[in-house]
């Protein structure tokens, strides 16, 4: 009887992943601090501390060990805080982060075992429980925003502000919105860094699929009449969409194996996101789309003869080796 069957991922790999994620998230926090002042830092610190405490206390209670040192809890706390309005009461960050760690992460086995992205689940929980405060954004303190309403609210009402004169402002994040997800340039730079980094490169296929799906659907079925490119731009820059596509979607615990599978997974998530944006009642449904994609993944695998597809690259390698040896 074989003695041991284990997953390929190790705690060391998880730690490296989370350190990279943390480093790539810090620019967004810096921009958030620049735009919104000390309130942004306070929210982030409280989110991180809550996540760390929940991980230590309840990790020991439930899992008999905690995995704080792999920094996943820190990353989850930071990501939840970045998706919230800067002037929101810190209790919301506490609640959302605690939900992410206690309900979505720890009960399923901790880092790299959860079938759902914890940060997305935490934000979704806050959205369902407190939709008004979560989508009431404060104007930034550093400058005057392009519009007094968030892009997500403008899309819901069919208004377009995407003109050549304001594109640079939108890309720099000079819009009313969440704490750390507005600076599109910083998110794009992080995505580029992930493409360069070999371990993260494959995960960017899911991001690519997601962005292509959102862009395609917004071009074909714009919510802002008369301006397809503007609608596409607004959809991509609105809310936490790009942030979720770059940081949340390529979560290694939920990402399928196989390059084509990753791309199709991103396509599916993007399609769900656009569907929920059209039919949903909340301003931003990106996290719900990611959670739905996470939930649908095992079903897709079973219906798709996933064993053959996932194993194809390795079978080819085996055949090549055995042919060479013969």
């Amino acid at each position: 009887m074989p003695q041991l069957i284990e997953r390929l991922s190790s705690s060391e790999e998880a730690r490296r992943w989370n350190v990279t994620s943390l480093l790539l998230t810090l620019p967004l926090l810096v921009m958030g601090w620049y735009y919104y002042g000390g309130a942004a830092l306070r929210l982030a610190v409280i989110g991180v501390l809550t996540a760390a405490l929940c991980e230590i206390i309840f990790g020991r209670l439930i899992l008999r060990t905690h995995t704080l040192l792999d920094l996943n809890a820190i990353v989850v706390g930071l990501w939840v805080a970045l998706m919230l309005p800067a002037d929101l009461s810190p209790w919301f960050a506490v609640l959302g982060t605690a939900f992410a760690i206690l309900v979505v992460k720890i009960p399923f086995g901790g880092t790299l075992h959860s079938p759902f992205v914890p940060a997305a689940a935490g934000f979704a929980f806050l959205t369902v429980c407190f939709p008004e405060p979560v989508f009431t954004y404060a104007p930034p303190t550093a400058w005057v925003p392009v519009h007094s309403s968030a892009l997500t609210a403008l899309l819901q009402t069919g208004q377009s502000i995407f003109r050549p004169t304001v594109i640079s402002s939108i890309l720099l994040g000079e819009t009313v919105g969440p704490l750390g997800t507005g600076c599109i340039l910083a998110i794009a730079a992080a995505a580029a860094a992930m493409v360069i980094l070999k371990p993260r490169r494959a995960g960017m296929l899911s991001t690519l699929g997601f962005v292509l799906a959102v862009a395609g659907i917004s071009l074909l079925f714009p919510r802002v009449p008369g301006n397809r490119l503007g609608a596409m731009g607004m959809e991509l820059c609105a809310g936490s969409l790009l942030f979720a596509a770059v940081y949340l979607l390529p979560d290694p615990a939920t990402l399928p194996r196989g390059l084509l599978a990753k791309f199709l997974y991103g396509l599916m998530a993007g399609g769900l996101c656009m569907l929920l944006r059209r039919l949903g009642s909340y301003q931003d449904n990106t996290c719900f789309a990611i959670l739905l994609a996470n939930g649908a993944l095992p079903l897709l695998r079973r219906g798709w003869n996933e064993k053959e597809n996932w194993m194809n690259p390795i079978k080819t390698k085996m055949k090549t080796k055995s042919k060479k040896s013969n």
């Binding site: 074989p2 003695q3 284990e6 390929l8 695998r301 064993k307």
Partner: peptide
């Protein structure tokens, strides 16, 4: 054959030459 997809659980790993009897 057990599943070889790590998300399903297994590449079959055999430690230190311990094979089935």
């Amino acid at each position: 054959a057990p599943s070889a997809d790590p998300h399903e659980g297994t590449f079959l790993l055999l430690d230190n030459g311990m094979f089935p009897e």
